[in-house]
Each structure stands twice: as C-alpha cells, then as structure tokens.
Design a protein around this nucleic acid. Structure first.
Lengths: 124, 124
DNA sequence: GATCGTAGTACCCAAAGGGAACTAACAGCC
DNA sequence: GGCTGTTAGTTCCCTTTGGGTACTACGATC
C-alpha cells in the first residue's frame, strides 16, 4: 500500500496530513466548477458568476480567494475604467483540472443512474 | 426509455440540473474518502470510523446515509450479538470510485506543490 | 450631480460540520 | 439479577460554512 514514489508520509486518510486540507479544497462543488470554468482561458468575476449558475458573489469571492491562496488561480486586476479583474489558472491549477474534469464528466455521464435525477427529470 | 446519448440536457453548470446535487454529494471530502475506503471490500462502521481518521460518528453516519440514499453504498445489518453493520459499494458506487480515486491520488502526488504542505512539512 | 457597470463587501440567517457524551440491544460474567 | 463490554449509532450544543440581499467604491458618461 505504500504507493507513489517516495515514502508514505503523505496520505489523504491521515487526518493530520496536509493532503486532507487540499482534498477538502478540491473536493468541493464550487471549486470543481470554478476551476473547470477557467480551463479554457481567464475569465472575469462577472462571467464566472454567470457561468457558475446559482453562486452568490460572496461565495464566489470566498472560493476564488481560497483557490488563490493555495496557488491554483491567479487574480489580475486591470485598473481600467469600471475596474476589471481576471482570474486565470496557474500551472498547478491547470494540472488539478484533469481529475476534476473527470469527476464532472462522470457525473454527467452517469446522472441517469441516480434516483435524484430520475425522479426529478422524468428522464425523457 | 431514456436517450442516454448526448443531448446536452444534463450539465453540472446548470444550477437546476440534478447533476449539481450529485456533484455536491461526490465533491465532498468525506464522501470521496468513504467511497475509497470501501473500494477494496465491505467494511463495518467502526472500521470506517478508524480509517477515515478524524471523522466523528455523527458525520460518518450522515455521509453514509447520503451515499446510501443516492444508491452508492448498501447498508447490511447482521443481527448478531453486539450488532454488526456492513457497508459496501453498489455497482454505481464502484463506478464512482474511479474519478474519486484519481482525485485523491492527484492530491497525494502533487501535495508538495501546495503552500499548505510546504509550510507544514518542510517538504523534503 | 445622477446614473451606469464592475467587483466586490457587510449584514444576517440557515445549514452543515464537528466533538463529547449518551443510548440501545444483548451476551457473558460475577 | 445486575454489571460490564461491544457495536452502532443518536443527541446536544457550538462553530463554521453556505447563502441571499443589499449596499459600497470607483470613475466615466449623460
């Protein structure tokens, strides 16, 4: 069960391992959606807010700040007229997109198998 | 029955799509860990509690109930002496493990690149 | 000087996360 | 008969996070 390359000092199943915090950050609805939204280029706050249908500005800010703190996204301010802020993926963020995209795609591909989906949509 | 092919009626970016609920269920620290823990066979409540280091019984119960409701795990009660309950993956749960395992493994493989990890472990 | 667009923040409430202690059921032991 | 031990939770309470609405700041334009 010792995996990866080196020692097993890192383990998501160890509550005191920093892996746990990172997993908590990534295994989150809004993080997964936000990173996915940035996959195809930088976007502005307002665009993200529309794309992440249903998110409130407060939660979007919190999500982006957390991702920024952990080095997954960059926040660039253009001091233009009505102010313009762009969020983009860092190299780390781009790499993190792969497993998150897989998760999102799995959900869409398998949604019909879930009771929640069948009951609500009637699944034409 | 249903057109499992590709209409785009299902989209995690649509807030009213049931995909969103399923994503919220799976994109969750404890769900990701619990499903992973069951990947190699059924386990009892107490074992899961130890394996998911740091989880409280209340949250473990809630997590397992949610996963059970959505058809990802089965709960089997053996009415033996001190009572014995086994949790196991359903076919759907087994399928969901793949993207979640990828996410967990990505975190472990890339943990050194995160400031949270570097700061705490000294990273080397 | 009022209005518009952009990117937030402030305030407040509800839901979820989380820990410690407690319960239920029953076997075996003293 | 009552005490203890085991397993799987539940209950209580508190903190944190999620979430919505309203509001602010900025300068340009009308």
């Amino acid at each position: 069960m010792h995996t990866t390359s080196c020692d097993r000092k890192h383990d998501v199943y160890d509550g005191s391992c920093p892996c746990r915090q990172v997993l908590d950050l990534l295994a989150n609805k809004w993080s997964a959606l936000a990173l996915g939204a940035l996959e195809n280029g930088p976007h502005r706050f307002g665009v993200l807010r529309e794309r992440l249908d249903g998110i409130s500005p407060k939660v979007l800010t919190a999500t982006l700040r957390r991702l920024e703190e952990q080095g997954l996204v960059d926040r660039t301010v253009f001091p233009s007229v009505p102010l313009h802020v762009e969020y983009s993926l860092t190299a780390l963020g781009r790499d993190a997109c792969a497993p998150l995209a897989a998760l999102r795609e799995w959900v869409v591909a398998n949604i019909e198998r879930f009771p929640a989906a069948g009951a609500k949509t009637g699944a034409r």
